[in-house]
Simulated scan of single mutants.
Amino acid sequence: MLQQLSDTAGSAPAIRKGRGVSGNVGNRFDRLGSEPFDDGWSTIIEEQQAPPPVSTTLTPDRSRSALSWNDSPDLGFDRSINPYRGCEHGCVYCYARPSHAYLGYSPGLDFETRLTFKPEIARLLERELSKPGYVPRTVALGSNTDPYQPVDRTLSLTRQVLEVLERFGHPVSIVTKSAGVVRDLDILERMAARGLVRVWLSVTTLDPALARRMEPRAATPERRLATISRLAEAGVPAGVLAAPMIPGLNDAELERILAASAAAGACDANYTLLRLPLELRQMFETWLQQHYPQRAKHVLNLIRETREGKLNDIRFGQRFSGQGPYADLLAQRFRRAARLHGLTTGAALSTDHFTPPAQVPAAGLRQKESAQLVLF
């Protein structure tokens, strides 16, 4: 684990250029753990002082479905699409990091370097939307990891998903930190004309130095604001997510983020408070000690103040907003700034245009149905 490595070597892990975290934390599902051991050659210290670059690897994900379903009362959607697992943006605070453990990987460096992708996602999505009785509601694209992370420039899975959604007339809400979303502006314009799409740009800070430390491979704050402008000019509804707000680190920027986004053309806004589930607590503490050692204790104490003395609260109704005076004040500030700049939380998208093509089952399904007919 990161902490074990630090204790053994006698110093904090070195910062890796272009990556959000320094190393891997243990996978909570592993039965066997390991600890670094220095055999007298000081190799551990040398590796920490000059850690080698870590390249990104891609593995096909053979999932049998494109849609993921949830019944969380905290979320404004019940279905989502994630073409990728893991994210090259490397955001240190990403609440999706612990989900990488389900794949047998670490939520640490593995999350941003060992990615999986769904090569059949468009075909799977088309099949699911064609099922008899399917009821359309807005689907979230990028609820777990960014659909426009750098690898999508090559694979273009997100565009394939949008092509299917456009053909079916299915509403979609997109969340991204990338300017790459403008690549698909042609599709988004057509969908926007039918009330089928909204794009949310996540803007956590206007400070490029802080953004580079927190989100090393995401677009700069300036490019994200420029992307809002491009979308708005094209008639695509654009919103800003000031998320996550981290007490004592970026929360003082909340009003400025909303003001700058509104000036760029955003019509909607929302925010969330920092969440630190499972392994993310350890990684975030280590990151604070590396980049903001004099402020780390204060930031962590403020987080605990919003989480009843803990660093995380998994309860529905609390996990995104927190509680207590500090969290209440943040909510009041958001509401006031949103009103001041005419920002709403987003109108519902249309489901009136949903028109699935003729019900033509895939080859595998036809074979299964034939076998069932033989049985009867």
Rank of each mutant, 00 (worst) to 15 (best):
L157A: 07
T158G: 01
T158W: 02
T158V: 03
R159K: 11
R159G: 14
Q160V: 10
V161N: 03
L162W: 12
E163K: 15
E163N: 13
E163Y: 03
V164L: 13
L165T: 11
L165Y: 06
L165A: 11
E166A: 14
R167I: 14
F168Q: 10
G169M: 05
G169W: 07
G169R: 04
H170V: 02
P171M: 10
P171K: 09
P171S: 07
V172H: 09
V172A: 12
S173D: 09
S173T: 07
V175L: 15
S178L: 07
A179D: 13
G180P: 09
V181S: 03
V182K: 03
R183V: 06
R183Y: 12
D184K: 01
L185E: 11
L185A: 11
L185I: 15
D186E: 15
D186G: 04
I187G: 02
I187Q: 01
E189N: 06
R190V: 06
R190Y: 05
M191N: 05
M191E: 01
A192T: 04
A192D: 04
A193I: 11
R194H: 14
G195Q: 07
G195Y: 05
L196R: 05
V197E: 02
V197T: 14
V197I: 12
R198A: 09
R198G: 03
R198M: 10
V199Q: 04
V199L: 08
W200D: 09
L201D: 01
L201G: 02
V203M: 02
V203A: 07
V203Y: 09
T204S: 13
T205Y: 01
T205E: 06
D207W: 05
P208Y: 09
R212L: 15
R213H: 11
R213D: 10
M214N: 00
M214E: 09
P216L: 06
R217C: 08
R217E: 08
R217D: 06
R217G: 07
E222F: 03
E222I: 01
E222Q: 14
A226C: 00
A226V: 00
I228D: 02
S229K: 13
L231I: 04
L231G: 00
L231S: 00
A232P: 04
A232D: 04
E233A: 14
A234V: 07
A234Q: 06
G235T: 13
G235I: 15
G235H: 14
V236L: 02
V236C: 00
